[in-house]
Simulated scan of single mutants.
Amino acid sequence: MTPSIYDWAGGSEALGRLTEVFYGHVLEDPVLAPVFADMDKNHPQHVALWLSEVFGGPRNYTAERGGHPHMAGRHLGRGITEVQRRRWVSLLMDAADEVGLPTDPEFRAVFTYYIEWGTRMAMIYSGEHPPPVDAAEVPVWEWGQTPPWQPASP
């Protein structure tokens, strides 16, 4: 049986290291530091929970944080720019290398696909006319398959 992306990445320990290192860099970055200036000290752990669930791990983000509606709601009104989005992606990819996430093409492709998709969704939710924050499930990425995003019906 093929392991989940979560397991392939190294599980909660690896994703926790990733977000700790990543947000350490974010707070020193001139493009992103202002965006995260008031970041809760537990934010890296919350993002690790989110990524764990997205990549097929335990559904702890949903159980503890409120799932997709909570995540989407955290981005409302933030006005994320394309420059900030790209910098976020770049720093996260660098952090993935730094903490030793797997480098095989299959893993990195699906990892990058989600990060690109997720950051673009964050921009959409942070913009002037976001879609409704509905009760959608946390998207779960699998090998070679990604869920299509569909806005809630009016």
Results as ranks from 00 to 15, higher is better:
Leu32Gln: 08
Ala33Ile: 10
Ala33Arg: 10
Ala33Val: 09
Ala33Met: 07
Pro34Thr: 04
Pro34Val: 02
Pro34Ile: 05
Val35Tyr: 02
Phe36Met: 02
Ala37Ser: 14
Met39Glu: 10
Lys41Trp: 12
Asn42Ile: 09
Gln45Lys: 12
His46Gly: 11
His46Pro: 04
His46Asn: 09
Ala48His: 01
Ala48Val: 00
Leu49Ala: 00
Trp50Gly: 00
Leu51Lys: 02
Glu53Lys: 09
Val54Gln: 11
Val54Ser: 13
Gly56Asp: 06
Gly56His: 10
Gly57Lys: 03
Pro58His: 05
Arg59Lys: 15
Asn60Asp: 15
Asn60Tyr: 09
Thr62His: 13
Thr62Val: 14
Glu64Phe: 14
Glu64Ala: 11
Glu64Arg: 13
Glu64Gly: 07
Gly67Pro: 13
His68Val: 03
Pro69Tyr: 06
Met71Trp: 01
Met71Tyr: 02
Leu76Asn: 06
Gly77Gln: 01
Gly77Tyr: 06
Gly77Glu: 01
Gly77Ser: 01
Arg78Asn: 08
Arg78Gly: 09
Arg78Phe: 07
Gly79Gln: 08
Gly79Val: 06
Ile80Met: 13
Val83Pro: 00
Val83Gln: 13
Val83Trp: 02
Gln84Thr: 03
Gln84Tyr: 00
Arg85Trp: 00
Arg86Gly: 11
Arg87Met: 14
Arg87Ala: 03
Ser90Asp: 15
Leu91Met: 08
Leu92Pro: 06
Met93Asn: 07
Met93His: 02
Asp94Phe: 05
Asp94Leu: 13
Ala95Gly: 07
Ala95Leu: 10
Ala95Thr: 07
Ala95Arg: 03
Ala95Val: 06
Asp97Ser: 13
Asp97Phe: 13
Glu98Leu: 11
Val99Phe: 04
Val99Gly: 05
Val99Glu: 01
Val99Thr: 08
Gly100Ala: 05
Gly100Val: 11
Gly100Met: 05
Leu101Tyr: 04
Arg108Ile: 06
Ala109Asp: 12
Val110Ile: 14
Val110Pro: 02
Val110Phe: 10
Phe111Leu: 14
Phe111Cys: 10
Thr112Trp: 07
Tyr113Pro: 08
Glu116Asn: 07
Glu116Met: 14
Trp117Tyr: 09
Gly118Lys: 06
Gly118Cys: 09
Met121Tyr: 04
Met121Cys: 07
Ala122Val: 10
Met123Ala: 11
Ile124Val: 14
Ser126Phe: 09
Ser126His: 05
Ser126Thr: 04
Gly127Glu: 04
Glu128Leu: 07
Glu128Val: 07
Pro131Cys: 04
Pro131Asn: 06
Pro132Tyr: 01
Val133Glu: 00
